[in-house]
Design a protein around this nucleic acid. Structure first.
Length: 440
DNA sequence: ATAGGGTTAG
């Protein structure tokens, strides 16, 4: 009797693990609560609470979360550190202020290192870097998670020197073993900061000596880092050694090939990925479509776009549409390009209009140009759109509509916008930020 | 195995 109800409770708990919808999760949770007897292990109750919190925070509903918070308080489950850290984590993703408020109410007996690390991560995402660092310095104990959270914080905010100094501290002044989580953190941070090739090789050496690649995330980070550094042969080598390549590995590799204009290899990789039944995602398609654009592979691009929509049921986003417009426009297929714009489910952006109208100018197709221009003029005048406005002025002039052309120029002068002035916003963050230097 | 830090584009 008691055994059957325990099995049933276990099944519900298992189901709760994989549920994604918040209302189903809450439903299963209350079902489970009804089955639990006082004699049941307390472990059941807190695990159920933790599993329920995941879909709740994914649903991004603060009212739902605070409702469940009330229940956790009343049932005294919040005294359990697992529950407290999970709830704090959920809050921190939705409202850092609410997370801070909750943190202040957690009693010392519950506030273990897990809870403190969640709070540190929350501060790293939302607060001044210095207050996160002060919190880190005040931690009574620090484990590998505390250190890598703080490291990622420095790197993600572009504080390379501080990040590297902290990395030196953890390696030289503590007994903490650098794990693959931390390496992936470092690698990702350094990749986006443009600190590429030497660092990547160092981490790779560390990984090889450790007899890896054991971690899927680290494999992706290594491939991406080598690819961004221009070391595509190294990226390929790492890629070949990953045992169970997932969509991330394939996508990182395809992006790498596409961004270095090795378009045919990008297309080949994509086709091989599909043959091996690895499901491409929207980013994979962005990469392979841009390879098609760069190589002028119109038919391949058309085929892949259709594959994405019909076979993989991926709703095209603005990048996908942008690739298709560019693909057709560059090939002089202006009707096809304009057709894509007409079927888009969102407003075309400046990139898309520029692509179409530049091709209209090049191929001297004023018919489509006139239709497009009328709509493109709805975009507000700004430095970013200056190039588009110049193009429209040129097209008017080409069609002999000098007054309209002059009007556009006058409008630009009135709004004081000039082509290329947007370039002054290019980010300059010191010598390490210059990726072109790091590529060599 | 079981809570907290990491992965792909623009």
């Amino acid at each position: 009797m008691s055994l059957t109800h325990l099995i049933a409770a276990g099944d519900i708990l298992n189901a709760l693990r994989w549920v994604a919808c918040p209302s189903s999760a809450l439903h299963l949770y209350s079902l489970l609560r009804l089955r639990l007897r006082p004699s049941d292990s307390f472990c059941f109750a807190w695990r159920a609470a933790v599993f329920t919190l995941k879909p709740l925070s994914a649903a991004a509903s603060l009212p739902l979360l605070s409702h469940f918070h009330g229940h956790l308080l009343r049932s005294n489950l919040l005294a359990h550190p697992h529950v407290a850290s999970s709830l704090l984590h959920s809050y921190s993703l939705l409202s850092p202020a609410a997370a801070h408020q909750l943190f202040d109410q957690i009693p010392p007996a519950t506030c273990n290192l897990y809870v403190l690390n969640v709070m540190l991560a929350s501060l790293c995402r939302s607060s001044e870097l210095d207050s996160a660092r002060a919190f880190f310095d005040d931690l009574p104990d620090k484990d590998v998670v505390s250190w890598s959270t703080m490291l990622a914080c420095y790197f993600s905010r572009g504080r390379l020197a501080d990040g590297l100094a902290l990395f030196r501290s953890v390696t030289f002044t503590t007994d903490i073993a650098v794990d693959y989580f931390m390496l992936a953190t470092l690698l990702t941070a350094c990749t986006s900061a443009g600190l590429l090739s030497p660092f990547c090789r160092a981490v790779h050496g560390y990984v090889v000596r450790g007899g890896l690649p054991a971690s899927m995330h680290l494999g992706t980070a290594l491939i991406d880092c080598y690819a961004k550094a221009g070391c595509l042969d190294y990226a390929t080598r790492v890629f070949a050694r990953v045992p169970n390549r997932n969509v991330m590995h394939w996508t990182a590799m395809i992006c790498g090939m596409a961004s270095h204009l090795r378009n045919n290899e990008a297309v080949q990789l994509f086709e091989e990925m599909c043959q091996r039944r690895v499901q491409p995602n929207e980013i994979t398609f962005t990469a392979v479509l841009s390879a098609c654009v760069n190589a002028g592979l119109v038919e391949k691009g058309r085929e892949f776009f259709k594959l994405m929509v019909d076979d993989y049921c991926i709703e095209p986003n603005i990048h996908h549409y942008g690739c298709m417009v560019d693909l057709y426009a560059k090939a002089g297929l202006l009707e096809d390009a304009y057709e894509v714009i007409k079927t888009m489910k969102m407003e075309p952006n400046v990139i898309i209009w520029t692509s179409l109208l530049a091709a209209c100018k090049k191929f001297k197709n004023l018919e489509i140009a006139v239709e497009g221009m009328e709509k493109a003029l709805a975009l507000e005048i700004s430095d970013e759109n200056a190039g588009l406005y110049m193009l429209i002025s040129d097209l008017y002039a080409m069609g002999g509509r000098w007054d309209d052309a002059m009007n556009i120029r006058r409008l630009m002068e009135e709004h004081n916008v000039w082509k290329n002035r947007g370039l002054s916003s290019i980010k300059v963050d010191g010598p390490q930020g210059l990726s072109s230097a790091a590529v060599s």
